[in-house]
Nucleic acid binder design. Structure first.
Lengths: 113, 113
DNA sequence: TATCGATATGCGTGGCGATGCATAACGATG
DNA sequence: CATCGTTATGCATCGCCACGCATATCGATA
């Protein structure tokens, strides 16, 4: 049967240019893609706008091609959008993350008792 | 061939009593088992004795049966030793950790490019 | 051209992991 | 019973992550 133990973990993907994409960043990217707004995405995740903005800046700086485009002013006050690179990154991460979830439950069942 | 991306991760095992055992704690346990001394183990890992002692206390408190026995005074000034439970915990963790390493490299090869 | 909502960014703060210092207690052994 | 090396534990601190406040900027639109 299932073990009394549970196996947990975190994983992240590093690119050759130093990009790091993990759980939190991917969630942010997905929310941005969903809502078209950085402030709304941050709020939806219970994350401060200040910090979300820093993450976006870091990701864009450390990546060869930017993952997110931000524009201020205009209708609605501004806009946030994923680039094709950004969407690719999300998709790639989600793929390996799904495998990871399978791995974790699979390992938990191997544990004693 | 191999991808330009690399997949990294951390994993830990939680017991029903709230025990948490992960990379750092296991390394400490192994060093204790190896050296028979908490202060020596901490030093060998470049970890402060203060913190290593706290970790041991936490692990023992949160586990049903203690993982480490500590004794002060006497020949050599004191002694640290793993219980059978402690050794089991290490062995179990190492087993799933080995699988985890395989998983990570395996996933990295699935990534684009 | 005034408004409005979002982006842009500095500055101070609080929690947490981890360190370092200092001091006490312990107990086998000489 | 003095010594010695380790365990035992308080307290102050440092760095990093993340938050919160405050303010400036931008640009479509009414």
């Amino acid at each position: 049967m299932t073990s009394q133990f549970t196996v947990h973990g975190r994983l992240w993907i590093e690119g050759p240019d130093g990009t790091i994409i993990g759980h939190g960043r991917v969630e942010l990217l997905e929310k941005i893609d969903d809502l078209g707004s950085l402030s709304a995405a941050a709020a939806a995740l219970g994350m401060s706008y200040r910090y979300a903005w820093k993450l976006v800046k870091l990701m864009n700086e450390h990546s060869d091609k930017p993952l997110i485009t931000l524009s201020s002013g205009g209708r609605g006050g501004g806009h946030a959008e994923l680039t094709a690179t950004g969407k690719d990154a999300v998709a790639t991460y989600r793929l390996t993350d799904r495998e990871f979830e399978r791995f974790l439950t699979e390992q938990a069942e191997k544990l004693p008792r």
